[in-house]
């Protein structure tokens, strides 16, 4: 899969390269954890087991949806570093809120970037999807790009859709 924009309906001016750097920087700032991006195939993507996803939608003259999917363990690790708590101290609410807040921050970064290209979007309230082995799917030509990030303990699947 190319790092560049796979589909670019309406010339969205959002590149996979920008997204990757922004996402890794956000995770690093919020958690102190370094993530690497790995290349993946469609088969890898379909085999990814998501248990919790943070989702944000940006709406306006163009619309974008960003989903960040991971396992509960990955989410627990991320949130524990975010707030400086032990994993055992985290509640369900902490996990739900933390994952959606990461999506919120990513959405904000994309929103700011798009505004520099003259595209003004509204950021909607982020939300969380939970459930073993769930999969966020899309119609053809709506998925802008998909990226997988990881370190030793965490894997995150990021999807960006142009709605």
């Amino acid at each position: 899969m190319s790092d560049d924009v796979m589909n670019n309906p309406g010339n969205l001016a959002l590149s996979g390269f920008f997204f990757s750097n922004a996402f890794k920087d956000i995770i690093r700032t919020m958690t102190g954890l370094e993530l690497m991006e790995e290349k993946m195939s469609m088969e890898d993507m379909k085999a990814f087991k998501a248990q919790i996803s943070g989702v944000i939608i940006l709406s306006g003259e163009k619309s974008i949806m960003i989903s960040l999917s991971m396992s509960f363990i990955a989410a627990t690790t991320l949130i524990s570093f975010m707030i400086g708590a032990q994993c055992s101290e985290l509640s369900d609410e902490d996990l739900n809120d933390g994952v959606s807040e990461i999506a919120n921050v990513v959405g904000g970064k994309i929103k700011t970037k798009m505004s520099l290209s003259g595209i003004h979007l509204n950021i909607l309230t982020p939300f969380t999807i939970k459930g073993n082995d769930h999969y966020i799917t899309q119609r053809d030509k709506v998925l802008l790009f998909i990226k997988k990030f990881h370190n030793n303990d965490i894997e995150i699947l990021a999807k960006v859709f142009a709605l």
């Binding site: 102190g32 570093f81 975010m82 707030i83 400086g84």
Partner: peptide
């Protein structure tokens, strides 16, 4: 704080 203390 307890967040920055754990970074490294």
């Amino acid at each position: 704080d307890n967040i920055s203390i754990q970074r490294g």
